[in-house]
Design a binder for these strands. Structure first.
Lengths: 319, 319
DNA sequence: TTGAAAGCGCTACCAC
DNA sequence: GTGGTAGCGCTTTCAA
């Protein structure tokens, strides 16, 4: 089913069909209608490839996310979609399920579908490079490598320092942290935490937690076992914090009276729990928007500086 | 920057470049390496359009969602992404922000980007048809119209009947509902609710609520004003329920003792609140997966029957 | 207003 | 193993 079939059916040349379909001026009204009718009749649809080939417009961006079900990434994706729409760009979303094999498969096919990539990549530089030569890439939360590439960093240091300072100021000194169970060792957030603690001449207990409500619940049991008098808690992210708060309450701790809790991410869902979750807040809106901005620069052939998004303390109720 | 530039740079014909790039057999190892090096050097990248035009493979699906930040749609989208990946399909996501104008713009451009559409469309049939002739469409939660089209319906009737029956069985008789503030009048869910109430010879109070935590909070104030002795509440969705629970508690109601609450959707986030939210559960996993299945049928030229997903009562703690 | 011809960048099928 | 030629479906000149 091509443009020629429509032409035949309408009794005109295929160029005329093109004119009718693209609403060009130079065409007789009756002819145009006849062509349009024929096209509708046949259920004709122009090939997006042929059209894209000759028109050379229409940009699409590949958005690579580790887990759409994690509200943090949903917020980023949502902001990116809005920013892309403003430019009439299309966004192809890939969820790698936080799995290197899936990420590899994504990388292998994404190149033939999009004009640029933005998102969270975790494979080694050389693997990424091999699949993305010539393709602009905006990395989030990871340093950059090679040409046509830039990065957006999330700096939580100030935010976490503010959180620890808040704990100290409100008389909390038995402070713990529930970190991420990471294959790559202790997280940056944990380092920031420990630096902040050192600044206050404090030493904190750190326990690893799975990145889920359940992970938070389990880790909370562990940390309270080690340190029953814990009076303040920072977590790797909000989801862990929510799980931790639930368990803490079941174990008889009032929040924030007995135990102050501060999460990380500052998600909207933090307002849904009781008390509302205080958190080191990342502006996901800005993160997603900036990512698309950076793509635009890359696409324009520029070599933009990496951008840093700074997290800040957002007090809601749990601390 | 085309394949010919690479050919020139490597000193071969452009067909040979194609062979090298596509890993075809019939090529000398040295030549191949030379071509690959030249390509890398130049940052060459094959045109996805030219390639798609001649290869005629690679399918991409347009997923149209009213609001990615609503966890319900996130769950559906997530499932659809998984199902699409299994078939090596690419998914282009469009968030219409629940806005007819944005939906219209989406429809206008989506046709030249994807091979099929699946999702939530709210414009009138004729508008949709005009933009999607020849394009397969899988509608979710809406009846179908025209060829190359099918639908997936969500039937919450049984689930809501079960919810009301549960209320009645546990001795609750002052039952209210927080419905969706809809431009199109009372929702289907409200009709189901009222039918169920009639079955039990009960009459419920219904109040409209905005689709957000805040909407739920406000509507809760209103309904308790009208009916201070309310002892059971059904809501249009889980987000509204969560807002309602918060306000109810602030107004001195214990949940579920004084007020039993059942939401609708059965979202994961319902487990994050205290007490965990009971809900009429929709299998979003199945919904997303089935949607992609239906696309596959449509793409194969079949004319699949509409599918119905039945919601069921999921008791967690709030009722 | 319409038709003919060129060409977008690529792969595939021939020859050589 | 390599180059020539055709052609994917379309838009866009250029003539008629």
């Amino acid at each position: 089913m091509t443009i020629r079939d429509v032409a035949k059916s309408a009794g005109v040349s295929y160029q005329t069909v093109s004119r009718a379909l693209n609403d060009k001026g130079e065409i007789d009204g009756t002819t145009k209608q006849r062509v349009l009718d024929a096209a509708r009749e046949l259920g004709y649809r122009p090939s997006r490839f042929a059209r894209g080939l000759v028109r050379q417009d229409s940009t699409s961006i590949g958005l690579v996310i580790p887990d759409l079900m994690n509200p943090f990434f949903t917020e980023v994706a949502s902001a990116a979609l809005v920013a892309a729409r403003r430019r009439d760009w299309h966004v192809v979303v890939y969820d790698t399920a936080d799995d290197p094999a899936q990420e590899q498969r994504t990388l292998a096919v994404i190149g033939s579908q999009v004009d640029a990539i933005v998102g969270y990549l975790s494979l080694p530089d050389d693997v990424i490079d091999r699949h993305t030569t010539g393709l602009p890439v905006v990395h989030i939360g990871r340093s950059t490598s090679g040409a046509h590439t830039t990065a957006i960093h999330v700096d939580g240091e100030e935010g976490i320092h503010a959180a620890v300072a808040h704990f100290a100021r409100t008389g909390r000194h038995r402070i713990g942290m529930l970190d991420h169970e990471d294959r790559h060792g202790p997280s940056l957030r944990r380092t920031w935490f420990q630096n902040a603690m050192t600044n206050h001449d404090l030493k904190g207990t750190v326990v690893a937690a799975g990145q889920s409500i359940d992970g938070g619940q389990r880790a909370m049991v562990t940390i309270l076992d080690t340190q029953p008098k814990l009076d303040a808690l920072l977590t790797y992210n909000d989801v862990i914090a929510i799980g931790a708060m639930r368990t803490a309450r079941h174990l008889g701790r009032r929040i924030p009276e007995d135990l102050a809790v501060i999460g990380f991410d500052g998600l909207h869902i933090g307002t849904m729990v009781e008390p509302p979750l205080s958190s080191v807040w990342i502006d996901t809106q800005k993160l997603g928007t900036t990512a698309i901005d950076q793509v635009e620069h890359l696409l324009a052939g520029e070599d933009p500086e990496p951008v840093t998004i700074r997290a800040s303390l957002l007090l809601r109720g749990s601390a």
